[in-house]
């Protein structure tokens, strides 16, 4: 019976690799177009789904956007123009790689700011430790007391 399990697992693995969500069979004039198409459909985000590229989504609108991408590539539009065309209709939401605007600037700035802030805090804490009196320094009385305590214990 074991071999049946192994066989089933193998079948599932092969089937899994064949699944290519919502992908139409496409014929491209040349390999460059194919590469650009494959790149674009993973850069554009499905406006109907919460977090899927149009290349990964079965939503009808993703199919329409793939069709439009394919047509525009063959009409000679540049990647930039195709992306602009989509943003013009479906807003910046469809970009997985957001554009640099005042609103999105923080996506790049925030991590850097957090790093700087963390470094400043770390330096401040380190300095404070250096400046504070060493806990190893005891007064004479304390030393005597400590020794007597230790002596008693041993």
């Amino acid at each position: 019976m074991r071999w049946i399990n192994k066989f089933l697992i193998l079948v599932l693995m092969v089937a899994g690799s064949l699944v290519w969500a919502g992908q139409e069979a496409r014929y491209f004039d040349n390999e460059q177009l194919r590469d650009r198409y494959n790149k674009l459909i993973w850069q554009l985000r499905c406006p109907r789904c919460e977090n899927q590229a149009i290349g990964d989504s079965n939503a009808p609108i993703s199919g329409d956007m793939r069709d439009r991408t394919y047509e525009m590539l063959h009409q000679g539009y540049s990647d930039r123009e195709i992306i602009d065309y989509m943003v013009d209709r479906y807003s910046e939401f469809v970009l997985y790689n957001p554009r640099l605007t005042f609103g999105t600037l923080w996506l790049w700035l925030a991590p850097a700011l957090a790093l700087v802030l963390g470094a400043v805090v770390a330096v401040l804490l380190a300095r404070r430790k250096q400046r504070s009196p060493s806990s190893a320094a005891f007064t004479k009385d304390e030393k005597q007391r400590l020794e007597s305590l230790l002596g008693k214990d041993s």
């Binding site: 406006p47 109907r48 939503a59 329409d64 209709r89 479906y90």
Partner: peptide, 12 residues
């Protein structure tokens, strides 16, 4: 074909 829909950013 959903052409006007596409022009208007209709998703469904």
């Amino acid at each position: 074909n959903g052409d006007l829909g596409f022009e208007m950013g209709v998703t469904g």
